[in-house]
Protein backbone atom coordinates (compact mmCIF):
# COMPACT_ATOMS: atom_id res chain seq x y z
CA UNK A 1 0.00 0.00 0.00
CA UNK A 2 2.74 2.36 1.03
CA UNK A 3 4.75 1.37 -2.04
CA UNK A 4 1.74 1.94 -4.30
CA UNK A 5 1.22 5.39 -2.85
CA UNK A 6 4.91 6.16 -3.24
CA UNK A 7 4.86 5.04 -6.88
CA UNK A 8 1.79 7.18 -7.55
CA UNK A 9 3.48 10.20 -6.00
CA UNK A 10 6.64 9.61 -8.01
CA UNK A 11 4.67 9.21 -11.25
CA UNK A 12 2.61 12.32 -10.57
CA UNK A 13 5.73 14.37 -9.86
CA UNK A 14 7.39 12.97 -12.94
CA UNK A 15 4.40 13.81 -15.15
CA UNK A 16 4.18 17.31 -13.71
CA UNK A 17 7.89 17.90 -14.28
CA UNK A 18 7.89 16.54 -17.81
CA UNK A 19 4.79 18.52 -18.78
CA UNK A 20 6.48 21.77 -17.76
CA UNK A 21 9.92 20.93 -19.00
CA UNK A 22 9.10 21.33 -22.66
CA UNK A 23 7.30 24.61 -22.88
CA UNK A 24 6.98 27.28 -20.29
CA UNK A 25 3.82 29.27 -20.40
CA UNK A 26 4.65 32.93 -20.91
CA UNK A 27 3.60 36.06 -22.71
CA UNK A 28 2.37 36.17 -26.26
CA UNK A 29 2.52 39.26 -28.45
CA UNK A 30 -0.40 41.51 -27.47
CA UNK A 31 -0.35 40.54 -23.78
CA UNK A 32 0.05 43.15 -21.07
CA UNK A 33 3.34 42.75 -19.25
CA UNK A 34 3.43 42.55 -15.49
CA UNK A 35 5.49 45.36 -14.00
CA UNK A 36 8.44 44.24 -11.88
CA UNK A 37 10.83 45.64 -9.30
CA UNK A 38 14.33 44.28 -9.75
CA UNK A 39 17.67 45.33 -8.32
CA UNK A 40 20.05 47.08 -10.70
CA UNK A 41 23.85 46.73 -10.57
CA UNK A 42 23.98 50.12 -8.78
CA UNK A 43 21.77 48.77 -5.97
CA UNK A 44 18.69 50.78 -6.99
CA UNK A 45 15.38 49.16 -7.84
CA UNK A 46 14.02 49.54 -11.38
CA UNK A 47 10.47 49.07 -12.67
CA UNK A 48 8.88 49.54 -16.08
CA UNK A 49 7.02 52.45 -14.54
CA UNK A 50 10.23 54.11 -13.21
CA UNK A 51 10.98 56.09 -16.35
CA UNK A 52 7.97 58.31 -17.00
CA UNK A 53 9.31 59.51 -20.36
CA UNK A 54 9.74 56.04 -21.86
CA UNK A 55 7.39 55.15 -24.73
CA UNK A 56 8.38 51.54 -24.15
CA UNK A 57 11.41 49.37 -23.58
CA UNK A 58 13.69 46.87 -25.23
CA UNK A 59 13.83 44.23 -22.48
CA UNK A 60 16.71 41.83 -23.01
CA UNK A 61 16.99 38.62 -21.02
CA UNK A 62 20.73 38.08 -21.16
CA UNK A 63 23.69 37.08 -18.99
CA UNK A 64 27.48 37.31 -18.68
CA UNK A 65 28.45 33.77 -19.58
CA UNK A 66 26.45 32.64 -22.62
CA UNK A 67 28.58 32.90 -25.79
CA UNK A 68 25.51 33.86 -27.83
CA UNK A 69 24.68 36.65 -25.36
CA UNK A 70 28.31 37.77 -25.53
CA UNK A 71 28.16 37.79 -29.33
CA UNK A 72 25.14 40.09 -29.10
CA UNK A 73 26.42 42.31 -26.27
CA UNK A 74 27.70 45.13 -28.49
CA UNK A 75 24.48 44.99 -30.53
CA UNK A 76 22.48 45.45 -27.30
CA UNK A 77 24.67 48.43 -26.33
CA UNK A 78 24.08 49.87 -29.82
CA UNK A 79 20.30 49.33 -29.62
CA UNK A 80 20.25 51.40 -26.43
CA UNK A 81 22.35 54.13 -28.07
CA UNK A 82 20.04 54.13 -31.06
CA UNK A 83 16.69 54.04 -29.28
CA UNK A 84 17.02 55.40 -25.70
CA UNK A 85 16.81 59.00 -26.89
CA UNK A 86 13.79 58.09 -29.03
CA UNK A 87 11.92 56.69 -26.02
CA UNK A 88 12.78 52.98 -26.16
CA UNK A 89 15.72 52.40 -23.80
CA UNK A 90 17.21 48.96 -23.15
CA UNK A 91 16.69 47.16 -19.84
CA UNK A 92 18.88 44.05 -19.49
CA UNK A 93 17.82 41.29 -17.08
CA UNK A 94 19.92 38.35 -15.92
CA UNK A 95 17.89 35.43 -14.54
CA UNK A 96 20.61 32.77 -14.33
CA UNK A 97 21.05 31.28 -10.89
CA UNK A 98 24.34 32.62 -9.54
CA UNK A 99 25.05 29.40 -7.67
CA UNK A 100 24.69 27.20 -10.74
CA UNK A 101 26.52 29.76 -12.83
CA UNK A 102 28.95 31.78 -10.68
CA UNK A 103 29.96 33.89 -13.69
CA UNK A 104 26.43 35.31 -13.59
CA UNK A 105 26.44 36.36 -9.92
CA UNK A 106 25.40 39.88 -8.91
CA UNK A 107 29.06 40.78 -8.31
CA UNK A 108 30.01 39.47 -11.77
CA UNK A 109 27.14 41.46 -13.30
CA UNK A 110 28.41 44.66 -11.66
CA UNK A 111 31.87 44.03 -13.08
CA UNK A 112 30.62 43.22 -16.59
CA UNK A 113 28.38 46.26 -16.85
CA UNK A 114 31.21 48.51 -15.61
CA UNK A 115 33.85 46.94 -17.89
CA UNK A 116 31.62 47.17 -20.95
CA UNK A 117 30.21 50.59 -19.93
CA UNK A 118 26.55 49.62 -20.18
CA UNK A 119 24.47 52.75 -20.62
CA UNK A 120 21.36 50.92 -19.40
CA UNK A 121 20.22 49.06 -16.28
CA UNK A 122 21.38 45.48 -15.79
CA UNK A 123 18.93 43.88 -13.38
CA UNK A 124 19.16 40.67 -11.40
CA UNK A 125 16.06 38.43 -11.41
CA UNK A 126 17.02 36.57 -8.25
CA UNK A 127 13.77 34.63 -7.81
CA UNK A 128 13.61 33.99 -11.59
CA UNK A 129 9.95 34.97 -11.36
CA UNK A 130 10.19 37.70 -14.00
CA UNK A 131 11.81 35.37 -16.55
CA UNK A 132 9.16 32.73 -15.80
CA UNK A 133 6.28 35.21 -16.07
CA UNK A 134 7.55 36.55 -19.39
CA UNK A 135 8.30 33.03 -20.60
CA UNK A 136 11.97 33.68 -21.33
CA UNK A 137 13.73 30.35 -21.82
CA UNK A 138 17.16 31.26 -23.16
CA UNK A 139 19.63 34.08 -23.53
CA UNK A 140 19.55 36.39 -25.33
CA UNK A 141 15.79 36.90 -25.77
CA UNK A 142 14.16 40.28 -26.34
CA UNK A 143 10.69 41.51 -25.41
CA UNK A 144 9.83 44.90 -26.91
CA UNK A 145 7.06 46.52 -24.86
CA UNK A 146 5.08 49.64 -25.67
CA UNK A 147 3.46 51.94 -23.11
CA UNK A 148 -0.30 52.17 -23.55
CA UNK A 149 -1.71 54.35 -20.77
CA UNK A 150 -0.53 52.72 -17.57
CA UNK A 151 0.08 49.36 -19.27
CA UNK A 152 3.03 47.93 -21.14
CA UNK A 153 1.97 45.77 -24.08
CA UNK A 154 4.26 43.14 -25.61
CA UNK A 155 4.92 44.00 -29.26
CA UNK A 156 7.82 41.72 -30.15
CA UNK A 157 9.32 38.52 -28.71
CA UNK A 158 12.50 36.80 -29.80
CA UNK A 159 15.87 37.22 -31.43
CA UNK A 160 17.77 40.46 -32.01
CA UNK A 161 18.59 39.66 -35.63
CA UNK A 162 19.04 36.62 -37.86
CA UNK A 163 22.82 36.25 -37.72
CA UNK A 164 24.31 35.52 -34.30
CA UNK A 165 27.85 35.22 -35.62
CA UNK A 166 27.97 38.50 -37.53
CA UNK A 167 25.44 41.28 -37.07
CA UNK A 168 26.78 43.00 -40.19
CA UNK A 169 25.63 40.00 -42.24
CA UNK A 170 22.15 39.89 -40.71
CA UNK A 171 19.47 40.32 -43.36
CA UNK A 172 16.71 40.73 -40.74
CA UNK A 173 17.20 43.12 -37.81
CA UNK A 174 14.09 42.08 -35.94
CA UNK A 175 14.35 44.33 -32.87
CA UNK A 176 15.55 47.40 -34.72
CA UNK A 177 12.74 47.00 -37.26
CA UNK A 178 10.13 46.44 -34.54
CA UNK A 179 11.07 49.58 -32.60
CA UNK A 180 11.26 51.67 -35.77
CA UNK A 181 7.80 50.46 -36.74
CA UNK A 182 6.42 51.30 -33.29
CA UNK A 183 8.00 54.77 -33.46
CA UNK A 184 6.34 55.28 -36.85
CA UNK A 185 2.98 54.22 -35.42
CA UNK A 186 2.93 51.08 -37.54
CA UNK A 187 2.21 47.48 -36.58
CA UNK A 188 5.26 45.26 -36.09
CA UNK A 189 5.62 43.26 -39.30
CA UNK A 190 7.62 40.39 -37.77
CA UNK A 191 6.35 40.11 -34.18
CA UNK A 192 8.26 36.94 -33.22
CA UNK A 193 11.46 35.26 -34.36
CA UNK A 194 13.26 32.32 -32.83
CA UNK A 195 16.98 31.81 -32.37
CA UNK A 196 19.39 29.44 -30.70
CA UNK A 197 20.61 30.45 -27.27
CA UNK A 198 21.71 29.20 -23.84
CA UNK A 199 18.95 27.78 -21.69
CA UNK A 200 18.40 29.89 -18.55
CA UNK A 201 20.06 28.21 -15.55
CA UNK A 202 17.00 27.54 -13.40
CA UNK A 203 17.41 26.94 -9.68
CA UNK A 204 17.13 23.31 -8.68
CA UNK A 205 13.67 22.72 -7.24
Amino acid sequence: MKTAFFLCAVTATFLAVSAFSVLQPGYQVGDKAMDFSLKNVDGKTISLGSDKTAKGYVLVFTCNTCPVAQAYEQRVIDLDKQFASKGYPVIAINANDGQLSPGDSYEAMKKRSADKKYGFPYLIDETQQVAKTFGATHTPTVFVVQRQGSDFVIKYIGAIDNNAQDGGQASQKYVQNAVNELLAGQPVAVPTAKAIGCGIKWKKA
Binding site: V22, L23, T137, H138, T141, G158, A159, N162, N163, A164, Q165, S171, Q172, A193, K194, A195, I196, G197, C198, G199, I200
Partner: peptide, 20 residues
Protein backbone atom coordinates in the same frame (compact mmCIF):
# COMPACT_ATOMS: atom_id res chain seq x y z
CA UNK B 1 21.96 27.12 -40.99
CA UNK B 2 22.43 30.41 -39.16
CA UNK B 3 19.01 31.89 -40.02
CA UNK B 4 17.51 30.05 -37.04
CA UNK B 5 13.99 31.42 -37.34
CA UNK B 6 13.72 29.81 -40.77
CA UNK B 7 13.92 26.26 -39.39
CA UNK B 8 13.47 25.96 -35.58
CA UNK B 9 9.67 25.73 -35.85
CA UNK B 10 9.98 23.11 -38.58
CA UNK B 11 12.04 20.91 -36.28
CA UNK B 12 9.54 21.43 -33.47
CA UNK B 13 7.09 24.28 -32.82
CA UNK B 14 7.48 23.67 -29.08
CA UNK B 15 11.21 24.40 -29.20
CA UNK B 16 12.03 27.97 -28.10
CA UNK B 17 15.60 27.78 -29.36
CA UNK B 18 17.19 27.02 -25.97
CA UNK B 19 20.02 24.48 -26.01
CA UNK B 20 20.16 21.60 -25.35
Amino acid sequence: ETDYNAWIDKVSPEWSGALP
